[in-house]
Design a protein around this nucleic acid. Structure first.
Lengths: 152, 152
DNA sequence: TTGAAACTGTAGCCAAGGCTACATACTGTG
DNA sequence: CACAGTATGTAGCCTTGGCTACAGTTTCAA
């Protein structure tokens, strides 16, 4: 969404969400934006790591969307400097993309492990983690790690 | 999004996501759709329960958006049978809306408690719960409840 | 080597969820 | 009771993330 246009001076009428107690909502909402990107980056990294190639069609199938949707998102990945892709030649991650992928993957693991540790059935854990992981803050992630370590 | 159009017969070219191992993504994505609705419904219920009125401006401020955005979302709530609102007269929940609100509230509590129980700092717990709760499946919620009861 | 099949890409549409700008209704004071 | 100020509502625009339809490339097997 509003990807920092750097043009605020004019007027700015209604300033929403001055830090009242409940503007926690805003945070969750904004965070949600990057979720898709993270999924793509993680998947691309996996595909390359385990097979060699990340083709748009495979990505689309794995994410569960049609290929034009995947291609459009990949274009956005490129715009944001996370991936590179020449037409008909597969998708690759930039340095930044790889870094992000690694971070996402690590977080995913911790979330799944935490869910399992508190007794969530394996299947649900894997499935829910996909949705949950994008909303886990650093503080919470750290707490999860601690919990897992302290009761192995 | 594509809210079940009941019109598939024609052609349907590309069927995305036949249950391959990784179509778990789709689930998380779809679930995300209802998140906003849930937040609104919960908030409206809170406002009514604790003060008497749920006005669009208050809702907007609490959610952290401008009032036209809130009004538009409230319109959607009405369309979906979760709320009723006559112009200039505040927003109220339907039976269905109240039921949903109660369910959301209960889930929120469990999620926060679970986070606290595994050692997440209170502030982060409250904040993250807002984003996490919409992705917690029934199975996982049940597991959370069990965990809390069995050690707590 | 040549074509059919599969993959890739483009165009154009839609709904959700944001925003700003403007218009209208309410309400409470003076 | 009038009117200023606030709350509501409307219009119109934007981006994201979906989709279908169609067009252009590659590739692989006859």
């Amino acid at each position: 969404m509003p990807e920092s246009h750097a043009d605020d001076p004019p007027k700015r009428a209604e300033m929403p969400a001055e830090p009242t107690q409940a503007s926690r909502f805003g945070k969750a909402r904004t965070a949600q934006s990057g979720a898709l990107m993270e999924d793509y980056v993680e998947l691309i990294s996996d595909l390359i790591g385990s097979g060699g190639e990340a083709r748009p069609t495979d990505i689309a199938r794995r994410i569960g969307v049609t290929h034009p949707t995947a291609i459009k998102t990949i274009a956005r990945l490129k715009r944001e400097g996370l991936a590179i892709a020449k037409p008909y030649r597969g998708v690759f991650l930039t340095e930044a993309g790889e870094t992000l992928a690694e971070r996402v993957r690590a977080r995913h693991r911790v979330v799944v492990d935490l869910l399992l540790a508190v007794g969530v059935p394996a299947e649900a854990a894997e499935q829910d983690a996909e949705g949950l992981e994008h909303h886990v803050s650093d503080a919470t992630l750290a707490a999860f790690g601690r919990f897992l370590r302290e009761r192995g």
